[in-house]
Structure formats: C-alpha cells, structure tokens
Amino acid sequence: MKSFNLKHSLLFLPAVLFMLLPLYGLLTAVLNSFGRHRGWTLDYYRQIFESNRFVTSLVFSLQTALIATLLSILIGIAFTRSFYPILEKMAPRVSVWIPMLFPHFVWGYMVILLLSETGVAAQLLTAAGWIADPQQFPILTRDPDGIGIILTYVWKEVPLVILMLLPVYASIRPEYYALVDTLGGSAWNRITAVELPHLLPVLMETSLIIFSFTLSAYEVPALLGTTFPEMVSVLSYDWFYGSSWQKRPLAFAAMVSISLVLLVLSFIGYGYLNKARWRAMRGSRS
C-alpha cells in the first residue's frame, strides 16, 4: 500500500518540477506587491486602483479578452459543428490547425501585414478599385478599440477550440439525436439537450485558457495595440522595465490582481462543474 502511494506521489513529480518556477514567480510577485523589502503595505494596490491609467487599462483588457474569448468559442463551435464529419479526416483537420504552429507574435505580424492601412488587403482592394486609396481602408490594427488584438486572438484561438471540441463531437452518440427527434424536439433541442451538456466541461476549460491568455499575454497587444488604452500586460511591462525602479511593485500589484481575477473565475468554473448534475454527466454517483 505504501509503495502504491509512493508511486502516485512520484507521478506528480514532473508536474511539481514544472510548476516550481512559475509558483516561485507568483509567490515573489505577491510578496513584492505587498512591499516585502520596504515594509509591509497595501499602498501599491491603493495606488494602482486610484490610477486612471490602470483602471482604464483593466476595463479595456477585460473587455478585449472577453470579446476575443466569446468570439473564438462561438466561431469554434459553429465551425466544429458544421464540419466535424469532414474534420475527422486527416488532411482537413491538419489544415485547420495550421495557425497553431505559429507563435502569437508571428501571427500578430501576419495580421499587420494583411490588415494594416498599408497592408496586403488594403493594396488589393485599391488595385481592384473597391477603394480609391489605401488610406480609406478601415483602421483594424493599432486601433483604440482593440480590434486588431481581438482579430489576432480569434484567428489564433479558433483552431484551439476546434482541437478541444472535435473529440467531444465525435463522442456524442448519434442515437441521442434520433431520440430528441422521436420525442418531438427541434434542431435547437438537439443542441441544448445533447450537445451543450457534453461540451460544457470542455467549453468551460477552453474559455478559461483563452481568457487567461488573452487577458495577460504581452506580445500581441504590444504589437497591435495603442498607447491608450493599453492592455494590463503592456502597462505592467512598462512599469516593470521602465526607467524608474519605484514602479516595479506596481507591476507586481497589477499582475497579482489579474491572477486573482483568473483564480476566482477558475474556482467558480470548477465549483459549477463539480455540482451533482455535471458529476452525473461524467457517470459518477453522488
């Protein structure tokens, strides 16, 4: 019995080793945000939440991340739902996943090349005579509404959503659709009674992953964002590597606040999925 437990503990070892560095980082960030070397204080949190620059940035970040997440999920569901019989074949599936091969900043550059005011799309539309001048092309990158950031993320994350949802769609027993039909249900009933309950855990996980990433990642907003409003990650980077060391704790306080938002969301999601109803979905008894 003892060796059994030991074996189980050993299985956690790679994960623990892998997590050591980020956990150390998180812990140091938390300590520094409370002023570890200069006497314990809540002052840095007070400062950031009183700063217009941070609050605007936080709202902008949450809004951009939320829109990017929702659009990725909705487009991903629609795409998987419409094409999953085709996507079960190798070649179409691999071609859908191509954007996943590129790092985010490369994809960001691609979006700039394609959709900036001097980009390929603007040039093509001008050449085709649809617009008189490339300057008439709508501002889709480095715009104050975060359209460029959202576009890049959606483009990049939809393949991830498809990757996550495809096995779920493939595992839904077609008899359930026939059942809903014979009970008198519509196409909408098929979605709500059969598909969504199956998708829910994966959707929840995927949404959390995408939301966390889009909320806190640096390179895409740095490439495609403006200076005001800016994403929290860009602002924190600025505070962290800026000329004044005084502002470093502000960067820690900002990122710790973001981590807290994400932790709370994860716990809500986990708590919801752990309700008897969704445990029953996974076949376990309460």
């Binding site: 008899e175 026939a178 059942l179 009970l183 109803r277 969704w278």
Partner: peptide
C-alpha cells in the same frame, strides 16, 4: 415514440 435498445436517458 421510440424506445431504444439502450435507455439513452440524458445523464445530466
């Protein structure tokens, strides 16, 4: 209405 070979109850 059709009663299938498997009960096919909605698990949730």
């Amino acid at each position: 209405s059709l009663v299938f070979q498997q009960p096919l109850l909605f698990p949730h």
